[in-house]
Simulated scan of single mutants.
Amino acid sequence: MKTTENFTEKADIYAKYRPHYPIKYINYLFSANKLKEDQIVADIGSGTGIFSLQMLEKGLNVMGVEPNDDMRKLAEQSLKRFSRYTSIKATAENTTLEGESIDLVTVAQAFHWFDKKAFKIESQRILKQKANVALVWNSRDLTNPIIKEIAEICQKTCPNFKGFSGGMEESPEMFNCFFKEGKYEFKKYQNDLKYDYEGFLGRNLSASYAPKENDKEYKRFVFLLSELFERYSENGNIVLQNITRSYLGNV
């Protein structure tokens, strides 16, 4: 399966249960990049539009570039009220955007799917001079016991599991290669996530590697997660320690 198809049939659950990004991070993006209303952001791998929405609410023009039909169509439906939103069926490596037309490239929760070298070249082509690329993930705190147990469940039941966010936290050298002269600004924000049972299950089922309902490991996956929820939840809720990681720089 091509990586562009990893979330086919998962768009609805992804949109419903994936978290937004901290307001502190959004404000940081604006100040660090000296953004003003009406400037143009290219949100690459924009998915169901979770991050695009936060940019649109700040008055920016957003070009949402997404190759997956299910994800893109859901974004188009949910963001159609914004006249400043443009949906584009294209890939990170070939965005079809005009050269030197973009004030900021953003990639939320998607960089690990890209061909890094090809995306770097494409970013250099579409960005205005001295404009930045912002990479961001909502990533699980791997030191947390609950997160460790979820990883163990995924290893047992998800054949395509290679670590959360494609193992992004384990390969920081990719950022040194991607950003110009290996220079970038790293920021992190505590962004703990509170879920009831439905939300907890939905968040885990929205992962690209999670089994779908007709897969043989689906019932075992759900059972083990349900058991974990019962052990750790308090008053019907569970808190997952989450860190928003930001990487910003020239390419």
Score class of each variant (00 low, 15 high):
131 A>Y: 04
107 V>Y: 07
136 V>R: 06
141 D>N: 09
123 S>R: 03
110 A>L: 05
115 D>A: 12
120 K>G: 12
134 A>R: 08
120 K>D: 02
141 D>L: 07
119 F>L: 08
123 S>M: 10
127 L>G: 03
105 V>S: 00
138 N>R: 07
136 V>A: 15
126 I>F: 07
138 N>H: 05
109 Q>T: 05
115 D>N: 15
120 K>F: 10
138 N>L: 13
121 I>S: 05
140 R>V: 14
128 K>Q: 09
108 A>I: 02
115 D>W: 10
133 V>R: 00
102 I>R: 02
123 S>T: 13
132 N>D: 11
132 N>K: 15
112 H>Q: 06
106 T>R: 01
116 K>Y: 13
127 L>C: 08
120 K>V: 08
112 H>V: 04
141 D>Y: 08
126 I>R: 02
104 L>H: 02
105 V>W: 00
133 V>L: 01
116 K>N: 10
118 A>C: 04
104 L>A: 07
130 K>R: 15
132 N>T: 15
104 L>E: 02
108 A>M: 02
141 D>Q: 01
106 T>D: 03
116 K>W: 09
111 F>G: 09
118 A>D: 06
109 Q>P: 02
119 F>G: 09
117 K>H: 03
119 F>H: 08
110 A>I: 01
106 T>A: 03
121 I>E: 12
104 L>T: 03
111 F>W: 08
124 Q>W: 04
112 H>Y: 03
132 N>Y: 09
113 W>E: 09
113 W>H: 12
127 L>P: 02
133 V>D: 00
105 V>G: 00
116 K>G: 07
138 N>Y: 11
124 Q>C: 10
114 F>M: 05
124 Q>F: 09
103 D>W: 10
119 F>P: 10
110 A>G: 14
113 W>Y: 13
109 Q>N: 12
122 E>T: 11
117 K>S: 09
111 F>R: 04
139 S>C: 14
126 I>S: 13
124 Q>P: 02
103 D>R: 09
138 N>V: 11
111 F>V: 04
141 D>T: 02
125 R>C: 14
136 V>E: 11
125 R>F: 13
108 A>D: 04
110 A>M: 03
121 I>L: 13
119 F>W: 09
138 N>A: 08
117 K>N: 04
110 A>C: 10
141 D>P: 05
118 A>R: 06
122 E>Y: 13
110 A>E: 07
110 A>T: 03
123 S>K: 06
135 L>V: 10
104 L>I: 07
118 A>N: 05
107 V>A: 15
108 A>P: 03
103 D>M: 11
112 H>W: 00
133 V>C: 01
113 W>V: 08
120 K>H: 11
123 S>C: 15
129 Q>S: 04
132 N>I: 14
132 N>P: 05
133 V>W: 00
106 T>I: 01
114 F>V: 05
113 W>Q: 08
127 L>W: 01
136 V>K: 09
118 A>S: 08
114 F>R: 00
117 K>I: 07
141 D>H: 01
121 I>C: 04
138 N>F: 07
113 W>F: 12
117 K>P: 03
139 S>W: 12
116 K>E: 14
120 K>S: 14
103 D>A: 12
112 H>M: 01
129 Q>L: 07
141 D>S: 05
110 A>H: 09
117 K>M: 00
116 K>M: 12
126 I>N: 06
